[in-house]
Amino acid sequence: MEKSIVICTICPIGCSMEVIEDRSSDSGYLVKGNSCNRGIDYAIAEVTNPTRILTSTVRLNNAGLRRLPVRTDKPVPKNLMLACMKVINSVEVDTPIEIGTVIIENILSTGANVIASRTV
């Protein structure tokens, strides 16, 4: 039986929860150690498909500022973050850039675009 420990980030308490595979439950998992129900969904998502918004910068030409801040417009799988960084670091852009402009479309086929997070 697969078991993992997940620390909840929903609220400041930060419950340490145990997630155990359980075929008999609807979700397929049994969650222990949560102080509230919100922890259950979080814990299961962290075990089945953990995702994160990835934020970084890309090289910016012809401006006083040397880096343009960017982020994914949707969460990407956690295990693809470093692979996404390789793609992000291969990109250079020129000013002017409007906030929200798509810098990289559908990064690594995740369905997420990398967008500018400021105007330069």
Partner: peptide, 20 residues
């Protein structure tokens, strides 16, 4: 450049730059 700004006021998770 990281996100997590503005959850209370805008009900979204903005980057610091977007918030500014």
């Amino acid at each position: 450049v990281h996100n997590g700004f503005g959850l209370h006021i805008f009900r979204e998770e903005l980057t610091g730059t977007e918030y500014a």
